[in-house]
Simulated assay, not measured.
Amino acid sequence: MTDEKSAGDQSGLRIDKWLWFARLFKSRSQATEAVAGGLVHVNGDRVKPSRVVHVDDRLHITKDETRLEVIVRGMPVRRGPAPEARQHYEETPESIAAREQQRERNRLAAPAPDGRPDKHARRVLRDLRRG
C-alpha cells in the first residue's frame, strides 16, 4: 500500500484513486466499479482498478451517455476542490467537440412523453392516425 506522501510523487497512482481525486467520479467505489465494468480504458486497453496510471497516459471514460478522453497531466496528492483537480488532466479537443455535439442533439430532441396519454390526448392521436 502507498501512503499519502508517496501518492503525490510522479511514480503513479491507482486508476480508481486518480479518477476519484480528479473528481471524475463522486466516490472511489463508483470509480472502481466503472473501471472493473470496462467503462475506463488506459491507452486503449481495458484495465483493472489496481492499474497504475502515469503522466501522459490517455484515458477513455464512459459515464452515462458521455464519453470523455483525457490526458493525465499530474498526480494529485488529495481530493481537493474542482479547480485544483482540473489541473491534473486535460480533455482532448475531439472529446470536447463530441460532448458539444451530444449536448446540442439532446437540446434539440423532443421531450419524452410523461407516461400514458389521457382521454384528450388519445382522441388527438386517434384523429391524427385517421387522417
Rank of each mutant, 00 (worst) to 15 (best):
K48I: 02
W20K: 11
G38P: 03
A31F: 00
K17Y: 04
E84C: 00
Q101R: 15
R79M: 04
L24W: 03
P111G: 05
E91N: 08
G12L: 08
A85D: 07
R51W: 02
T66V: 09
T62W: 04
G8T: 06
R99N: 06
A7P: 00
P93F: 03
P113D: 11
H41L: 15
V47Y: 02
T32I: 00
M75C: 06
R58K: 14
N43P: 01
D3I: 03
G74D: 07
S95R: 02
L59S: 08
P81Q: 10
E104R: 14
G8L: 05
L125N: 13
K119Y: 11
L68M: 10
E94Q: 13
D45K: 14
F21I: 09
I61D: 06
R73K: 14
W18R: 08
D64P: 00
S11T: 13
E65H: 12
E90R: 14
G74Y: 02
P81T: 09
W20A: 12
F21M: 06
R126M: 12
T62A: 08
V53D: 11
K63C: 00
Y89I: 10
D127Y: 03
K48H: 05
R129P: 00
T32Q: 09
N106S: 11
D114F: 07
T2K: 13
F25K: 07
A34P: 02
R116Q: 13
I96Q: 14
L24Y: 04
A34T: 02
T2E: 15
L13C: 09
G12F: 06
R126V: 03
H88V: 07
G38L: 02
E91T: 07
V47S: 05
E91D: 05
R23A: 10
H88P: 00
L59F: 01
R79Y: 05
F21D: 04
G115A: 11
E94N: 08
E84F: 08
A112W: 06
A109S: 15
D114I: 07
T66R: 13
P111C: 01
Q10W: 01
L24G: 10
T92K: 04
L108M: 12
V72N: 04
Q101I: 01
L68P: 00
E90T: 10
R58A: 10
G115W: 06
L59D: 05
D127H: 12
R126G: 08
H54M: 11
D9T: 15
A85N: 08
W18S: 14
M75I: 11
Q30C: 02
A7S: 08
G44D: 07
R116T: 14
E90G: 09
I96F: 03
P93M: 02
R58P: 00
T62Q: 14
K48G: 03
V124I: 15
E94P: 01
A36I: 00
R123Y: 12
L125Y: 09
E65Q: 14
R103S: 11
G37C: 04
S95A: 12
W18A: 15
S50R: 15
R67W: 01
T92F: 04
V52L: 14
E94T: 08
R99K: 14
A112I: 07
G131R: 15
L13I: 10
G37Q: 06
L39K: 15
R99I: 01
V124S: 12
V70T: 06
D9G: 13
I15S: 11
A85I: 04
G44Y: 06
D64M: 04
E84L: 10
P81E: 10
P111Y: 10
